[in-house]
Amino acid sequence: MAVQAAPTGTKTPLVAMNHINVAFGGVHAVQDVSIDLFPGEVVGLVGGNGAGKSTLMRVLSGAHRADSGEILINGEPVVIANPRDAKVYNIETIYQTLALADNIDAPANMFLGRELTTRWGTLDDSGMEKATRTVMGRLNPNFKGFKKPVKSLSGGQRQAVAIARAVHFNARILIMDEPTAALGPAETAQVRNLIRQLKNEGIGIFLVSHDIHDVYDLAERVSVMYHGRIVDTVNKADVDMDDILGMIILGKKSGEVSKNELEKLL
């Protein structure tokens, strides 16, 4: 399948996933999918339920291994066998389910698995709290409750914690799986601003979302998945929202969708 070049010309992509296959038993969740991502770019990954978006992203974040296919980071082939490997390549993931431990506080969540320690090998809680306050000062200056279990925070604040984790650890590649699904309108706007900010800092972002408005607003390119395959990857400039919708629902490239079919949908 031809992958369309990024609008900024041909550099080495930050990430290239080539011919990825994942099967669960007899179900081909991801079939021969190729996708890439350039620095400072947002690539929207859209598709219906069970289209394979999340599974594809789980492969990149090390939560699930692909059955076949290769992953290139800055043009170098790499093996990502677990979440720790992904972190070595500065791939950070913000999961649909937030992936926070509800019972511990924001600094503990931000540093989960990568705690700072003092020279006696004890947890450096003050150091972690300071770093969290610094990052939050940038992302969400209104954030309070650094000592409270994150369970008691609002959805937006919890999402801020998840994003802060990615920012603090210098993510180069950020995977956001439905980052606004659990949020109210004001909080969604906050997260959108954040995504733009991160993009301007040169981070490459895969944005997985049901919300076509989100994707259309933020992404430079959009890859549409349908039943485990990529239907097409298009530059946002070349299509409108209805074209994307048609691709998601019918699983056909925008040129192949007839006016009649499209009208029936809308």
Partner: peptide, 19 residues
């Protein structure tokens, strides 16, 4: 200890955090 509590709070988050 932190890991024990994190596992109790959300085993998936702990695993994804690389614990």
């Amino acid at each position: 200890g932190r890991y024990v509590f994190a596992i109790g709070g959300n085993p998936d988050a702990a695993e994804l955090g690389g614990i």
